[in-house]
Design a protein around this nucleic acid. Structure first.
Lengths: 260, 260
DNA sequence: TAGTGGTCTAGACCACTCC
DNA sequence: GAGTGGTCTAGACCACTAA
């Protein structure tokens, strides 16, 4: 133990080559811990690739793989010909994930467990101006309109309204309908036939209708998660909004050295 | 051109070795495009490593690097001994970033440009129960209390209240004060002396005080961005909240194949 | 010119899966 | 056992930076 400590101080900490944790991951962890502990401060230059090769007794490719991971995570920034430097915190780069709030902590907002989804309405309607614009179709075209309510332990927590392109000639329509259903959107079998989606979260207050459905006072705060999904031809095929009760959902994020 | 098309159909598309875009990046781009175009659908297995080596005429390490990037992005999922498979959309994994909404589109919420930050109040106070708990200090300990208002083009858009540990014996206190100031938090010189931060975004409605300061009606929706920053010893050193006008900020994200 | 990071090779060995 | 992905080596060459 003492020997290890001395080696660490000398910058010669060895990797555990018998560990299940690969060498590159150990290097990422060790360097991240040293950054987190203040050994390397924001703006400091990390040892060069060849120095790290010597310190950890690995090849340059292994060091490079570790460096790539740390650059991807935003922990460090690499500059060709100059070196690798420790980055500081940057609030503007913080990424958030929607999480369910409950007494036991936070959990993924779209996990399948303990959720019940009720279909309130399914109809085929002519697209109004707004829907036609969002789905890039002619006004008056027929669209599928769906309203759903997500319950947790009997409480309504998310109110979902969605418009889908309706084109019975396209076989993809069935896939789209399947995807945006419970089975797809909430159970992890997502995305069959869909290519990508753009999401926006806004802060809103509940309208009378939304408040009644979510069993909250009108004027209560909520998240509005608007989504547009596109097919493989880059056409918008689904547009809708989740209204999420603010007392049940939050967005969480973290910035800085991740030592998990 | 026709030759290239035939090669692509035969799965022998060559890389542009003279391009500035490295081989691994070209491979990621080509495979992502093929996924986005529907050639590979969610659940499909990608060609094996050796097949991709032959197709692109590169070594296995280059293929592996490309695969690692696509796994990191969530485009595919790799399973040892089985293969690499295309993933579908997963709303639960969507990550959002706080962005400023204006007529010109969206921009980073904490960028420095065109912002003015006014210090409304700076005081040293005894910590009440709530602050003491958040900063993990004894109730009644002295803390620094700061109130700031962020303006864009003369309009107040963010109201910031923050509590900082006050310990003049610790040299880090100066650094902490510096970090959480304008110069630090808003100008990119962030994080000197700070290790990491936990962030939470909630939907709220403006209180009377907040509404007056932000020049909005009381009851208007807003984001509340709560932050706790920790030092290198993992002690909380700053706790505060940004109240962000909902008409000025949103959170944006994307899921699915990124072909940017 | 010396040092840095960036990319890449042509293998090797291992663990795992499925037949 | 054959095929898969996961890791790693010991170099090589290149582009960039700074003295």
């Amino acid at each position: 133990m003492n020997t290890v400590r001395v080696e660490e101080l000398e910058g010669k900490s060895r990797l555990d080559r018998d560990s299940y944790e690969p060498a590159y991951a150990q290097i990422v962890r060790i360097l991240s811990e040293e950054i987190a502990s203040g050994r390397y401060r924001p703006g400091d230059q990390l040892p060069s690739e060849s120095q790290l090769c010597a310190r950890f007794d690995v090849s340059s490719m292994t060091i490079r793989r570790a460096m790539n991971i740390m650059v991807d995570r935003g922990t460090v920034i690499a500059s060709q010909g100059k070196g690798v430097f420790v980055r500081g915190l940057d609030m503007g780069e913080a990424a958030f994930k929607l999480r369910e709030r409950n007494d036991a902590g936070v959990r993924a907002a779209f996990a399948a467990a303990q959720r019940e989804v009720r279909l309130l309405q399914a109809a085929i309607l002519p697209a109004d101006d707004r829907v036609a614009r969002k789905l890039d179709i002619a006004q008056g075209s027929r669209v599928v309109y769906l309203r759903r309510l997500v319950h947790i332990a009997g409480d309504p927590v998310m109110y979902h309204r969605e418009y889908l392109r309706y084109d019975p000639r396209q076989p993809s329509v069935e896939a789209e309908l399947q995807i945006t259903s419970l089975e797809g959107l909430f159970r992890g079998q997502d995305g069959q036939g869909l290519r990508r989606g753009d999401l926006t979260v806004e802060a809103v207050v509940l309208t009378e209708e939304e408040a009644e459905i979510l069993q909250c006072p009108a004027g209560s705060p909520a998240f509005c998660l608007e989504h547009i999904f596109y097919d493989f031809e880059n056409r918008p095929v689904a547009w809708g909004r989740f209204i999420c009760r603010a007392d049940r959902y939050s967005l969480v994020g973290r910035i800085g050295a991740d030592i998990s």
